[in-house]
Amino acid sequence: MKTRYDVVIVGGAIYGASVAFHLAKDPDFDGSVLVVERDPTYAFASTSHTNSCIRQQFSEALNVQISQYGAAYVQDFRARSGMEDAPPLRLHSFGYMYLADTPAFAAALKANQQVQAALGAGTRHMTPDQIAAAYPFYNLDGILAGNHNTVNEGYFDGGSLFDWWKRGAKRAGVTFVTDEVTSMTRNGDRVTAIQLKSGAEVSCDWVVNASGPRAARTAAMAGITLPVEPRKRYTFVFQAAEPLDRDLPLTVDPSGVHVRTDGAYYMAGGYPDHDPAVEPDDFAFDNGLWEDKIWPAIATRIPAFERVKVINQWVGHYAYNTLDQNAVVGPHPQVANFIFVNGFSGHGLQQSPALGRGMAEWITHGAYRTLDLSPLGYARIAANRPIVEKAII
């Protein structure tokens, strides 16, 4: 490790790897990059606990476009990454199925579908009869409408995407170090250096906050307030005594519980009704959640799931943006060399191709050159002006 780098990235999980890779692969970037990661096993990183899904079903056009690029990138990963030895990545497009149980919710789904369709997404707004014809295993009592898209929407291997971005970045000369940023030196409108737990100090031109649920702590080192906190999200993988006769879309039940096909098994997720912020190292499991909330919801919606056996379970963290559950990206308005890639609130993995590319563009060129990400900038945080995204899970 050197004592100076052009870019220091705090956090080496999916966003640290994406920004590092996209910088290293940009032909106009000729600087040096350091990625500081406190745990190189990534055992407790949100990236390691992701459900690896991607959807175009958002209400905000920019979020739709971000995920459309992500789907295209995944499906053409080898060519787009420029790594000829990288594996092909498959997108299993069983889609998301949003179910509405109130007139207001059904109207919101219809409006969302129109936004998505205008951008070329294949989302269908469906009546209960149409849903039942396509997926007869649902219990649709009380359901008024649904939205479903089987084009470029579903599951992909996010672990391989992450692994190959790390490999590609290292091949291109990016330095990864196991250490922890403990403080920063700020001189007026710039961060000029970081200090590490090992005692080292590294000067820099840019700092990228890619520290996931710890993002607010990283921002505070630069004197910046960021409304992002860790919140627990639970995943259960189960086997069904009566497997369904076709793939199960990622079904978002009105209860907030979601469930989907996971190979020969099924994967369900959710969170307790009481959903407080937690410490970044708090992974204590709520052992009553499955019996009290998750299983009753999925067994009610899909009666075939009355007899199931949980074979794996874990808890991870959302980097939860308390303002509007949308990403905070790009430079700080006053501390211009401090870059955010934070607060994704559960849709970070699917947005990582577009946002890694965007941050590399900003650092290299001082502007977004492909997709204008400025609506997701910090200015809305400072102004307390949320982006109202109606399709948060």
Rank of each mutant, 00 (worst) to 15 (best):
residue 173 G to N: 06
residue 173 G to W: 08
residue 174 V to Y: 02
residue 175 T to Y: 02
residue 176 F to W: 15
residue 177 V to L: 14
residue 179 D to H: 06
residue 180 E to C: 12
residue 181 V to R: 11
residue 182 T to S: 09
residue 183 S to G: 15
residue 183 S to W: 09
residue 183 S to Y: 03
residue 184 M to L: 13
residue 184 M to Y: 04
residue 185 T to P: 01
residue 185 T to W: 00
residue 186 R to Q: 00
residue 187 N to R: 00
residue 187 N to F: 00
residue 188 G to N: 00
residue 188 G to S: 12
residue 189 D to G: 15
residue 192 T to I: 07
residue 193 A to C: 09
residue 196 L to T: 10
residue 199 G to V: 11
residue 199 G to H: 09
residue 200 A to H: 12
residue 200 A to V: 05
residue 201 E to N: 12
residue 202 V to K: 09
residue 204 C to V: 06
residue 204 C to Y: 05
residue 205 D to F: 01
residue 206 W to A: 02
residue 206 W to T: 15
residue 206 W to V: 15
residue 207 V to C: 08
residue 207 V to M: 05
residue 207 V to T: 09
residue 208 V to Y: 07
residue 209 N to E: 07
residue 210 A to K: 11
residue 212 G to K: 04
residue 212 G to C: 07
residue 213 P to Y: 09
residue 214 R to K: 07
residue 216 A to I: 03
residue 217 R to H: 09
residue 217 R to W: 05
residue 217 R to F: 10
residue 218 T to D: 02
residue 218 T to S: 08
residue 219 A to Y: 11
residue 219 A to R: 08
residue 221 M to Q: 15
residue 222 A to E: 08
residue 222 A to D: 08
residue 223 G to T: 10
residue 225 T to K: 14
residue 226 L to W: 09
residue 227 P to C: 02
residue 227 P to H: 05
residue 228 V to H: 06
residue 228 V to S: 04
residue 230 P to M: 11
residue 231 R to Y: 02
residue 231 R to C: 06
residue 234 Y to S: 06
residue 234 Y to M: 05
residue 235 T to G: 11
residue 237 V to A: 12
residue 239 Q to I: 02
residue 240 A to Y: 10
residue 242 E to W: 01
residue 243 P to V: 12
residue 245 D to H: 13
residue 246 R to T: 14
residue 247 D to S: 13
residue 247 D to N: 13
residue 250 L to V: 14
residue 250 L to K: 13
residue 253 D to I: 14
residue 256 G to K: 05
residue 256 G to R: 13
residue 258 H to N: 15
residue 259 V to Y: 12
residue 259 V to H: 13
residue 259 V to M: 12
residue 261 T to Y: 12
residue 262 D to C: 11
residue 262 D to G: 03
residue 264 A to Q: 15
residue 265 Y to P: 00
residue 265 Y to E: 15
residue 266 Y to L: 14
residue 269 G to Y: 10
residue 270 G to C: 04
residue 270 G to P: 07
residue 272 P to F: 07
residue 273 D to H: 12
residue 273 D to Y: 03
residue 274 H to L: 08
residue 275 D to E: 05
residue 276 P to H: 08
residue 277 A to D: 03
residue 279 E to Q: 12
residue 282 D to P: 04
residue 284 A to Y: 00
residue 289 L to F: 04
residue 291 E to I: 01
residue 293 K to V: 08
residue 296 P to H: 04
residue 297 A to L: 04
residue 303 P to H: 03
residue 305 F to A: 00
residue 307 R to I: 00
residue 307 R to V: 01
residue 308 V to G: 02
residue 309 K to V: 08
residue 311 I to K: 03
residue 312 N to T: 03
residue 312 N to Q: 10
residue 313 Q to H: 13
residue 314 W to M: 01
residue 315 V to R: 03
residue 317 H to N: 02
residue 318 Y to A: 03
residue 318 Y to Q: 00
